[in-house]
């Protein structure tokens, strides 16, 4: 199925196809890896919306990437519960291992490191989310192993 058809099929679940914009953005991001303007325009075209509207929606949510991200995405929760039990040490461990600052992508485009708000794993803190999979809890000692997996995989 073409991306356009997939977007339309997902939107058809709703009484109003406008509601399909988020699922459409999700599908487009899966295909492109992020949401370049062409992807936004494609979602707009599929759903009979304007690209401006689609971009307005996409930019509202943290999980849509409007700039390129690495092949792998490492996200560290630094909200209260994680912070209280050492999230900052985990951030620093990743920064060390990856040679990146939080918010940066490695030069080879392999990894993006970023901090995120509460991921809903406060009882298993600190929470690290690698490629949308939760690693709970992650201690600074676990970091070299995770980075090794990313480099090996």
């Amino acid at each position: 199925m073409s991306l356009r058809d997939e977007i339309r099929a997902a939107a058809a679940q709703y009484p109003d196809q406008r509601s399909g914009v988020m699922s459409g953005l999700g599908l487009a991001q899966e295909q492109y890896g992020w949401l370049p303007p062409e992807a936004l325009a494609e979602v707009a075209e599929a759903l009979d919306l304007t690209p401006a509207h689609v971009q307005a929606v996409a930019s509202f949510y943290d999980m849509y990437h409007l700039a390129p991200v690495g092949e792998h995405l490492v996200e560290i929760c630094t909200n209260v519960s994680c912070a209280l039990v050492g999230a900052q040490q985990v951030v620093e461990a990743f920064e060390r291992e990856l040679g990146l600052r939080a918010g940066e992508t490695s030069e080879d485009g392999k990894v993006t490191l970023r901090t995120i708000e509460c991921a809903g794993g406060c009882g298993y803190a600190p929470v690290v989310v690698v490629d949308h999979r939760y690693r709970e809890p992650t201690r600074p000692d676990d970091v070299p192993g995770i980075v090794g997996e990313l480099n090996g995989g």
Binding site: T50, P51, A52
Partner: peptide, 19 residues
């Protein structure tokens, strides 16, 4: 016409067009 929109969120919000 949905061409002039708000982009981003919170105190970062701006009024803009597509690209």
């Amino acid at each position: 016409d949905s061409q002039l929109v708000a982009r981003d969120r919170g105190s970062q919000s701006i009024i803009t067009t597509f690209e």
